[in-house]
Simulated assay, not measured.
Amino acid sequence: MTGHPGPELLEEAELTEDASAGTDTSADDDAVLLFLGGPLDGRVEIRPARHGDPLPTVTHVHLHGGPKVVHRYDLEPLTEGAAVYNLRQPGNKPARDESVAD
């Protein structure tokens, strides 16, 4: 095996003069996420739009010689394409929807 695609694969490839064809280099739809508090304080992440919307809650687990330490961050949208993950304080859990009967 030479590592080169066979002739049947080469025939399917489309050639173009536009070097950017098929690649989206635009960051317009990417999300800029800032973490506040806890071990991730100050971290900035850019979530590519292809991954979808940011998660409403992020869990960070720190493993070390002692017990594992878990921190949860809740999403707070700021503007289109920018949001902050705030450290959830111990004991603060999202409110359960009481309007639905058990």
Rank of each mutant, 00 (worst) to 15 (best):
D18F: 05
Y73N: 00
D97R: 11
A19P: 05
D97V: 06
P94L: 07
E80C: 07
Y73G: 01
G42R: 13
G6K: 10
T79K: 14
P94R: 14
P67C: 04
D18K: 12
P77W: 02
G38S: 02
L55V: 07
H71E: 08
K68I: 08
L55Y: 01
T79M: 10
D29H: 15
G37L: 00
V100G: 05
L40D: 00
V61D: 05
H64F: 11
T23L: 03
D18L: 09
L75K: 11
G52C: 03
P48N: 14
A13L: 14
K68D: 09
T25D: 06
T16M: 06
G3C: 10
L55G: 01
V61Q: 01
E11M: 10
L34S: 15
V100W: 01
V32M: 11
M1I: 07
G3D: 14
V69D: 11
L63H: 14
D24M: 00
E12Q: 13
F35H: 04
P77E: 11
V58N: 00
G81F: 10
T16D: 13
D18G: 06
P77T: 04
P90A: 12
L87R: 03
D28S: 13
P48V: 09
K68W: 07
H51G: 00
L55R: 06
I46M: 15
P90E: 12
P7N: 07
Y73L: 01
H62M: 11
L34Q: 12
P67Q: 14
G42P: 04
L36F: 01
A31D: 07
G81Q: 12
A13R: 10
I46N: 15
T16V: 13
G65P: 03
G3L: 10
V58P: 00
V58K: 00
H71T: 03
V44W: 08
A31S: 15
P77L: 02
T59K: 14
V58R: 03
E14K: 15
E14G: 09
Y73F: 04
P39M: 04
L75I: 06
A49P: 00
D28L: 12
Y85N: 01
V69F: 04
P56D: 11
A27N: 03
Y73W: 02
G38W: 02
T23P: 00
P48M: 11
V84L: 06
K68T: 10
G6P: 05
A31K: 05
G66K: 11
A27H: 09
A21S: 10
S20C: 10
P67V: 06
D97P: 04
H62Q: 15
V69S: 03
D102I: 06
V58A: 07
P39H: 03
H51Y: 12
K93T: 14
A31W: 15
D53R: 12
R50I: 14
E98T: 09
V69Y: 02
L10P: 02
V44G: 06
E8I: 11
V32T: 12
P77V: 07
V32Q: 10
R88A: 05
T16W: 04
V69I: 08
E8H: 13
